[in-house]
Amino acid sequence: MAAPTLDAVLTGLAQKGATGSLRVGKDGILYLTRGRVSYAECADTPGVEDLLAASGRISPTRVREARQSAGTGGEGGDLLVREGVLSRGELQFCVLGATLDASFFLLESALPHQQAAPRTRYRDGDTHWLGTHWFFDVPGLFRECGRRRSRLDGVWPSAELDTRPVVPLPRIPGKHVVLTAAQWEVLLAADATATPVELARRLGRPAYSTLLAVRELASAGLLATGPEPGAPAPPEGPPGSGAPPPPEESPGSGTSAPAGRSQGASALPKRASNAAPRVVVRHPEAGQSAGQGAGQGAGPAGTSAGLPEVSGDPADMNLLIRLRDALEALQ
């Protein structure tokens, strides 16, 4: 195999309806069940085991025991549900959350350097010890990862904070702040040395949610986003991004980051062109206040090429009647 991309390998396995595990370099493993992704692990993201332990419901030792007694049968999840550690719904949500989180980083790391695609190794028939509790079809998984990427970029369009230590500002620019639970945890755990991924591990939260919280905090102006490497503007985007990133996503921003950014850029010209009709609308008032002579003199010249201004006053009515008569005479 001449180093096919991860996308290609995964798509191929999906078409074959494969059941097994796909190791992606040293980063992680994707598990497939009949051609659909049923679990994923990534070195950077907490797995179900970590999330379970972080929730305080079960000790890491008991998770290990469950794993051992589950063996290769892939019944570990059912075992945990039977033991009352968590409900079936929670297990499904946990598995789907961990799978998406890991996939986001696995597929993402495969994207930028497709030439040096990570080495993949497929083991047929391999299953995860938790068993199968949720499925993602492969195209759907790619779509969701893309959607998550653009959601991140919609909040704060620069990726530079993703890998840097999180440094909250000692003093905030405003007087009042509303935080989400995730943002609170990030701020409390941030020690100016831990990166978002490290914070996620510490907090037992998905890495993606932590990344999102960090970018939201940056967008709210609560983090040091100083341009250490040298660029003067915080976001490294094109000139259009000179405007601050939108504080909240607009409904359309789910599509892509560049769309969100160009939206911001196009806001200015739009506003400028809106301003022109507004001058015309305001004109009758201006005429009243500034004196009729001045108003009538300045208005038409500025707005339209030589056409007479029309308002409700009798002179204009007379003009209209004369125009109508002239047009009728032409016929």
């Binding site: 959607r147 998550r148 998905p206 993606y208 949610s209």
Partner: peptide, 25 residues
Amino acid sequence: DHTSGMAVAGEGVQDPARSALGLTE
């Protein structure tokens, strides 16, 4: 899923991704 704005599952919803985004907001 409120954090990511993802549609986890739906019944009778025409465009789950769009609905999910709107409801999240």
